[in-house]
Design a protein around this nucleic acid. Structure first.
Lengths: 211, 211
DNA sequence: GTGAATATGTTATTTATTTTACATGTTGCT
DNA sequence: AGCAACATGTAAAATAAATAACATATTCAC
């Protein structure tokens, strides 16, 4: 991945940035003003150089011997990750997992907002979870178009996940966050982030077995 | 990562195996007997050579011109991933997300079983979700020891995630699946699988921004 | 039967990521 | 003021993963 200035951004680095931010938040409450890569690395069991390289992609500059100004660093990460403005999303599938995401308080801190949920089940339609209304899936297309929503979350059963993805693409969704346990196939200009529990579990149990 | 015979197993390969299995399941219902890497690759928008190399770590042998016997391949993946015997886990934190995991039907297909849940809130203790009882966290230590549970799932708020991890380590848990949005720190002989929504979202929104 | 087509399996190359090494710049102490 | 300590930033090396190239084997068509 390349940013606007053609500097490379590696996906692993991107994934680590929220961790750094979380550590900084804690250290800020301790009253620290400056923070060094070494300190962050110690907190997270990483090595300082990796932290330094990761932070470097946000454009932050530190001072030798002192490190980074904590608040400036936090702001740099927030800005780089786009947490300072809100990304709106629709979620399809108001089952257990969908409701868990709707109820997740942490999203507001990272500029993410689930605007509405959609389901096809009469039992779900009309519910309101954490102030997010569950609407009839029938309305997904028109509402997505009208509100220009660009992010779709799939929390349906696997049987309907691909159909949901197709609907999302047709409706103008540009990025899909897929929690269903199948890999969805979409045109290559659509961004997909797969969140597959079976995959994670495969890694965990294999490591356990080989211990 | 190395297997028992010192062959390398890459984590990305491991994560892709469940996807292959899911495709095979579908194709089996179509009545296919043989399946080639090319077909699997087409289904998943991958390239044949990657599929072939991934399948190779399971030890499966295919026939030139025909491919792999579908059922044998499925069995090989299942065996390699340990889906043929059951991994038991305890979950701590019976909130939205914890309940979503307890209610997730897909785990039984992949040899995973959440035996019991634990929480400290009087409101949660005593509940039963999908036949999984929510017990008092007070009993976690003794029950883990007695039942020799090796996998712990953390779905608590971030404030108590590290304490929960410490409790798990003290109780003899060997592998932790962490859904709390902080990186937990554990002794290096403990396996940790982090499931961080903010990290995934960072990747998704950054790609969207740079589109 | 013979050869073209196709799929596997192995080896080599390229690319991506992590780690190491080193040079530069500040601070704070004497 | 000068020097030691330490942290940043950049360049280079090592490792890991993805991709490409090639050789081998088997089926199917003629």
């Amino acid at each position: 991945m390349k940013d606007k200035n053609n500097n490379p951004i590696s996906e692993p680095s991107l994934r680590r940035l929220p961790h750094y931010h979380q550590v900084l938040k804690r250290l800020k409450n301790n009253g620290e003003k400056y923070i060094s890569c070494t300190q962050i690395a110690n907190e997270l069991n990483l090595i300082p150089i990796q932290v330094r390289k990761d932070l470097n992609i946000t454009g932050i500059k530190g001072s030798p011997k002192k490190g980074y100004i904590l608040t400036k660093l936090m702001t740099a990460i927030e800005k780089f990750l786009g947490w300072n403005f809100v990304n709106e999303a629709f979620i399809v599938g108001a089952g257990h997992l969908g409701q868990a995401l709707m109820g997740y308080e942490g999203f507001s801190n990272i500029g993410f907002n689930i605007v509405a949920a959609f389901d096809s089940s009469k039992k779900k339609i009309g519910l309101s979870i954490n102030n997010i209304k569950v609407l009839d899936i029938i309305n997904f297309y028109s509402l997505t178009k009208r509100m220009k929503i660009e992010i779709g979350i799939i929390t349906t059963p696997w049987e309907t996940a691909q159909d949901t993805a197709d609907l999302m693409v047709k409706s103008g969704i540009k990025a899909i966050w897929n929690f269903a346990p199948i890999k969805i196939i979409v045109p290559e200009n659509i961004i997909v982030q797969e969140e597959n529990l079976a995959a994670s579990l495969a890694v965990l149990t294999k490591k356990l077995e080989l211990m």
